[in-house]
Design a protein around this nucleic acid. Structure first.
Ligand SMILES: Nc1ncnc2c1ncn2[C@H]1C[C@H](O)[C@@H](COP(=O)(O)OP(=O)(O)OP(=O)(O)O)O1
Ligand SMILES: [Mg+2]
Length: 411
DNA sequence: TGCCCAGCCAC
RNA sequence: GUUGUGGCUGGGCA
């Protein structure tokens, strides 16, 4: 019921999410800090029009951002008011739809992690299904068919007012450089409701695969299907391509999709080691490792004026976060070599704040080092480095290392 | 247990 | 200039 969507508690939660996301303004130029004020001024009117079915959402704002593969991602940013309403719809619809989704679907779903999807994939491979049909959809969100989506929504949602609001959001159009344009397909990349809608769309595909007893793992539009032979995999690929394009009206991305061995493919940032004895292991895919190196290069770039301490803090929090996700890998990631590489890069930077022994000693004292030790270590750059910076980097490798040096905390 | 902040990853 | 969903890590507050 629409009244449940617009209930105080639901709206309050939706409001908090919009504000805490700290996103930027939509076409009306109002940002999240103004939302409270905007609600107090406009909500009674908006609420009225939502109930009477005369609410008209604003068009989305087009923003293009670079994709990791070099392409462009076209974001569609709704106004904060529309984000609030969509958050409320999402909070209401998520618990209705999510429990009915497939066990093998992992993307955009509460309580489900990419790690579980990768573990499941590994299990299939080690059960002997060593051929994979790797399917990715082309411009997935942008190609979602409105009529099909609305029809599937109408199966579970009785309240026609909710359906009409969702349809209005799908048809809200976009505004680019002052020109508004209507749109006939797709759900905006950047709308709070889009991820759930996309899962509602692809749930039909999940059900189709389950009906055929296919072993698969899906994360958003990235689906891995496992088979025992190349022939079987290719047959599934043809069947699924036909299903997706003919009956679902979506497009299979020919350059990103393929039938191959799992260890030749990337899935959620990981890949696998080759094995014919059911002994494949999870490893970090090289492109993910390259992206990490790129990030480190920019943090340790000489052209970036930032204090050494801040640089190391940034580096450390990146490495800790990065490693946390990729710790799932079972092959030893070359962390030690990476650390050496990072240290070499940092040493090449001329840090002017450490020019004199005096400033170095004062810093060490501030870190809780005894006067005698501060004198000893602060005299040389090398000594300062070893005590004040190196342990932080080492910390990501070995927690015991810097405790040994008698430093409690640098961060 | 709840809330807030910073960040990382997937899509 | 960068939206969204979901997950996770670290820190802080009571
Ligand atoms: N940063 C993001 N913000 C919002 N939505 C996103 C973001 N990244 C991915 N998505 C959503 C929208 C995409 O259509 C969907 C699948 O991602 P992805 O396959 O990388 O792109 P895509 O399917 O739109 O283009 P491509 O043709 O390159 O596959 O996930
Ligand atoms: Mg895609």
């Amino acid at each position: 019921m629409l009244e449940d969507v617009l209930h105080r508690d639901n709206l309050n939660q939706a409001y908090l999410k919009v504000v805490q996301n700290k996103g930027t303004a939509g076409v009306d130029g109002r940002d999240t800090t103004e939302l409270k004020h905007q609600i107090s001024e406009e909500w009674t009117d908006v609420h009225e029009r939502l109930l009477s079915g005369t609410y008209q959402p604003s068009p989305i704002r087009r923003v293009k951002i670079p994709k990791p593969d070099g392409g462009q991602r076209k974001l569609g940013i709704p106004t904060v008011m529309d984000r609030l309403i969509q958050q409320a719809l999402n909070l209401y619809l998520q618990p209705i739809y999510d429990p009915a989704f497939s066990e093998h679907s992992y993307g955009f779903r509460p309580g489900r992690r990419a790690h579980d999807a990768v573990r499941k994939a590994k299990q299939y491979i080690n059960e002997g299904y060593t051929w994979v049909v790797d399917i990715d959809l082309e411009k997935f969100f942008d190609t979602v068919n409105h009529d099909r989506l609305m029809r599937t929504l109408s199966h579970r949602i009785q309240d026609g007012r909710i359906l009409r609001i969702i349809r209005k959001y799908l048809q809200a159009g976009m505004m680019d450089q002052g020109v508004t344009q209507a749109n006939t397909m797709g759900t905006p990349q950047g709308s709070p409701l889009s991820p759930l809608l996309s899962n509602i769309v692809l749930d039909e595909w999940d059900k189709e695969m389950e009906k055929r007893g296919i072993r698969f793992v899906r994360y958003a539009d990235d689906c891995q299907i496992y088979a025992g032979s190349r022939k079987a995999a290719e047959r599934i690929f043809r069947k699924m391509t036909r299903f997706l394009e003919k009956t679902m009206r979506l497009k299979v991305n020919q350059t990103k999709s393929a039938v191959d061995r799992p260890w030749k493919r990337k899935f959620l940032g990981f890949s696998f080691t080759a094995s014919s004895k059911g002994n494949s292991k999870i490893r970090v895919h090289r492109t993910s490792l390259e992206r990490a190196k790129d990030r480190i290069r920019t943090i340790t770039s000489r052209r970036w004026s930032i204090s050494m301490e801040d640089r190391i803090k940034k580096l450390n929090q990146f490495l800790v976060g990065w490693r946390n996700y990729f710790a799932l890998a079972e092959t030893p990631t070359p962390f030690r070599r990476m650390m050496e590489w990072i240290r070499r890069r940092l040493r090449m930077i001329r840090w002017k704040e450490w020019k004199t022994p005096k400033t170095r000693k004062r810093k060490l004292r501030g870190l809780g080092v005894s006067p005698a030790k501060a004198h000893e270590w602060g005299n040389t750059r090398k000594g300062y480095w070893r005590v004040a910076c190196s342990p932080i980097l080492h910390h990501t490798l070995n927690d015991a290392y810097w405790r040994r040096l008698g430093l409690k905390s640098l961060i």
